[in-house]
């Protein structure tokens, strides 16, 4: 239910101020719904690639685990861990942020991790399963990082879409109706006062006329 805003005197000044506020609120409502439309279209654009990427991540990771376990059986867990420590570190990924309607969307450059690490371990003391594991984990990693970019942006967009919707609803269902109810109330009060004034003037006129006739 729309409520009349409390603490406002029914004067013409207030009426003008309220009408201005209503105009601003309506404009704000329009801007928010435009913003939501843009965010929603960005959201769908990003989410459509997610499923395929996620599937390929799951698949390559599964393969990677399989070959890793087979390699572990032959070479031993500790040896593989040592080999891992000896592998060159992957280095940094470049994460930049671009903004869509004030929402910060991460962009990740996967260039630096896309080419597989070259094995620097002793081929005579390991087996081909380890090489397979290496290749597959790397593929999975690339998929994971690409997925991270999508999930990060989709998540930000989803949260912002909800916030925008909540604010638009607040304007649409609370602020604007309240302003309108108050405007109506003031207009009614002013009309009522005018009618009273009109009546009063008529009565005074009649009184004055009667007095003039008597004199």
């Amino acid at each position: 239910m729309a409520k009349i805003i409390e603490g406002i005197k029914p004067t013409r000044m207030e009426l003008i101020a309220l009408k201005r506020r209503r105009g601003i609120a309506q404009k704000g409502d329009k801007i928010l719904s435009d913003k939501r439309d843009v965010l929603v279209s960005a959201f769908f654009e990003r989410i459509k690639n997610r499923e395929a990427l996620r599937d390929s991540m799951l698949l390559t990771l599964e393969k990677a685990y399989e070959s890793l376990i087979e390699a572990e059986m032959v070479i031993g867990e500790d040896r593989i861990r040592d080999i891992g420590e000896g592998m060159p570190r992957i280095g940094e990924i470049a994460v930049s942020e671009s903004a869509i309607m004030g929402v910060e969307i991460p962009n990740i450059d996967t260039g630096s991790i896309e080419k597989p690490q070259l094995p620097n371990y002793n081929f005579t003391k390991t087996n081909s399963k380890l090489d397979d594991a290496l290749v597959n984990v790397n593929k999975a990693l690339v998929a994971i990082v690409k997925l991270a970019e999508i999930e990060g942006s989709v998540q930000r967009l989803a949260i912002e879409i909800e916030r925008t919707r909540r604010r638009a609803n607040m304007l649409e269902y609370v602020v604007i109706p309240n302003l309108e109810a108050t405007i109506k109330w003031i207009e009614f009060q002013l009309e009522e006062r005018e009618r009273e004034d009109f009546l009063r003037r008529k009565r005074i006129k009649a009184l004055l006329e009667r007095r003039r006739e008597e004199s």
Partner: peptide
Amino acid sequence: IAFNLVGV
């Protein structure tokens, strides 16, 4: 172990 192997 798996992710260590690729340098993560």
